[in-house]
Design a binder for these strands. Sequence first.
RNA 1: GCCCACAUAGCUCAGCAGGAUAGAGCAUCCCCCUCCUAAGGGGAAGGUCGCAUGUUCGAAUCAUGUUGUGGGCACCA
Length: 563
Amino acid sequence: MLPDQLLAFIQSILQSLSKDENNQIQDFSKLTVEKPKSLSYGDYSTNAALVFAKNFKKKPYELAKLITEKLDLEPNIAKTEIAGPGFINITLEKQALGCIVNTIIDKKSDFGKGDFEKDKNINLEFVSANPTGPIHIGGARWAAVGDALANLLLFAGEKVEREYYFNDHGNQIDNFVNSIIAKYYKNDIPKDGYDGEYIYEIAEKIMPLAEKKFDKLESLNDLELATAKEFIREKSVNIMFGEIKDSLNNFGTHFDIFFHEDDLYKTDEVDQAIEQLREKGYVYEKDGALWLATSKEGDDKDRVLKKSTGEYSYFAADVAYYKNKRDRGFGTCVYMLGVDHHGYIGRMEAVCKAFGDKPGENMIFLIGQFVNIVKNGKVVKLSKRAGNIITLDDLVDAVGVDAARFSLIRSAVSTAIDLDLDLLVSHTNENPVYYVQYAYARCSNVIKNALQFGVDIGKIKSGKGFDSSLLTQTSENDLLTTLASFPDIIKMSAKSFEVHRIARFLETLASKYHTWYSHCRVLPNTPDEIGDLHFARLALNCATAQVLENGLNLLGVSAPKRM
RNA sequence: GCCCACAUAGCUCAGCAGGAUAGAGCAUCCCCCUCCUAAGGGGAAGGUCGCAUGUUCGAAUCAUGUUGUGGGCACCA
């Protein structure tokens, strides 16, 4: 009997009781069936009596009594108990508890998969770093979390595409180009420019080509200089963007779409978007500039679409970009931003409303706090412009992809995390990822040993040749109920866009497995001693491996067969 | 000044659609390999959940206020 079956059963009991009492319950959303905190409470626990006591105008304990009377009639339930203020603790019969092993083995990599509304069609935009430098540590957090979130949502049954918004024009890029030129001629880096070894490397590659084509830059007139700069811009942005893509690939993060800001202008979409909003009465002219009345929809102030110089603002492109996403059929546009851009939410939600959409439904913001790098107990101030950034590549070089991804994912994005690089480098074993991976390696090793004993693992993996009701030890109960909670974890994490829950679940699961492993021997010392209990435990071992693998896959962390 | 996040063990963080004795890892201190991988297990110690009010049968969790920290307030992107 799986948790969701138990939930459905309790729901039906409540319904039948409410008929008796001439009382209808409509909303069951608060009803839960959970693994209780303490093992001594049983396998599962429900809050049914606490939540619905008022509907029945009874004290929780009295309602609990009515419910348990019905629960006790179910053959799969071994014992019920009313505890605390009115919790009902439920202990299942061993065969009902162990059947989760069969389910997992049967569903394999699909175990935990959900079937959400597919019509949502989610666009997940993340990283979207400007090509003015390598991906830094903050981008790395999103690269890990965004990718894992996409995996999670897909697994939960949503339709999702990963998108990177590639901004290759504007002031930042001009600063980038000017910095490259300055660096090459050993001039001072311009104010708001970029510095660092990578600028020099790009300059070394591009500038000789530029000089060959245009002559020394100082000898050019304004028009020629502009042409030369455009040449440098195109080449250097391409190099930078190539490096960014390589870093992301290295990190195991892949995008379905790389969207170029340029395309919005090429196709006139910016004008079209502005026109649409103008028809709705949101656009006006003031001081020679074109404005969007975002304050009508809750923003602090109105925003400029077209500057008095005649150029479009970056914001104008964002407006068009949102419309573009919606026109491409995305019902939900998720923006994953760093805290330094959270001021941006107000105006974008206003845009969303101006188009007649709903923020929170068509437009969702996930705000990620900073990742601080700590050295000698102190937070190091990093800046792309100062050139002392810690890049994604640095991080991967230092700790590897698995450890980097896991440590970035396991914390909620709403909390700032401090990464002590020295600690990560010198004591890599402290990273919980190894704890989880080790559990998987142990599972795999047990399977390997069983094969050497001549056990037909294929038979077990096909769900035959074992009796899961033989799994009666406390540590086995604990492991079984933890495995059974995986689908719920998926559902909850997907609903709340919180991937860190998956990482935390895996840590818990690994812990339960390690405990079980040290308490219950899976295989005997010699092949001829193998009995039914060993087969049952081998099945549990395989089921655990499967769930660990499913979870690690979602996070983009490898599941090694040996360590 | 206005706006947004965050505050839980020595450190890094979970827990927050209100629920039972607030958890994990690391660090500290004990114990466990003649036994499937000790990157493991068992145990000890460690807390006024920033502070104060309120909401209720019940608050780390919700609301208000307050303090502290980080961030944002451009015809920059």
